[in-house]
Nucleic acid binder design. Structure first.
Lengths: 107, 107
DNA sequence: CCAATTCATAACCGTACGGTTATTGATCGT
DNA sequence: ACGATCAATAACCGTACGGTTATGAATTGG
């Protein structure tokens, strides 16, 4: 289950890649060309980053003629949420136990 | 704000490091020795990983004699939650619950 | 006191990664 | 038909990173 989280964390660890993802999240759908223009790196670099994001399930691509449109895949962040949710549940347990303890001490 | 997210993502991207973090989350507080015994890597490697986690604000350390106890710093995941803010539309309830929980954990 | 334990640091090593330029395959515009 | 544009791939390069062993500083126990 956390195998997917691995790729997601790795994909989002790089600032350039995360910036690309954020632009896609804001603008909905962009071509490689459009992304390259404001990425600060070369077109091949952008293509590689998009490949990593795609492999991590964070983006989806659509080919139209000679250009490729990329957009965010909504479910892509799910592994991340799930991973954090797991610990949230754990923390809640600890909080619950703490609350129980405090209640018992009140007597 | 995204500078913190950067370190957090990077810190959690490595499987060994994330495993250490998970063990700390489950067990509450552990010494470097205890962590090393089941980490699958050498003690210096564990120490370095803990250094990265600490620098990312994900763990906190407490020195007692010759041993150092590490524990999870609950607020450490906050930058992650913040970063996902622009995704709120998709995650609404789940994100809200996480944010509530983190607020309750604030010291 | 001396030996052992604990942890951090230093020095080093191989590899993976992010970047580049060059190239190729498609596809569009004229 | 042809030149230009777009995107992916290949080949290469420097560096950062995760791992190791070796060493040192501090603390503990017998």
């Amino acid at each position: 289950m956390p195998a997917a989280a691995n790729k997601v964390f790795t994909a989002l660890a790089d600032p350039t890649r995360r910036a690309i993802f954020e632009r896609l999240a804001r603008n909905g759908e962009l071509t490689v060309r459009a992304l390259t223009d404001k990425a600060g790196v070369s077109q091949p670099a952008v293509s590689k980053h998009l490949g990593v994001l795609k492999l991590a399930g964070l983006v989806h691509d659509r080919h139209q003629g000679r250009q490729t449109h990329y957009r965010v895949r909504p479910k892509g962040l799910a592994p991340l949420i799930d991973w954090m949710g797991f610990y949230a549940a754990f923390w809640e347990d600890r909080l619950d136990r703490l609350e129980d303890l405090l209640k018992r001490m009140e007597q």
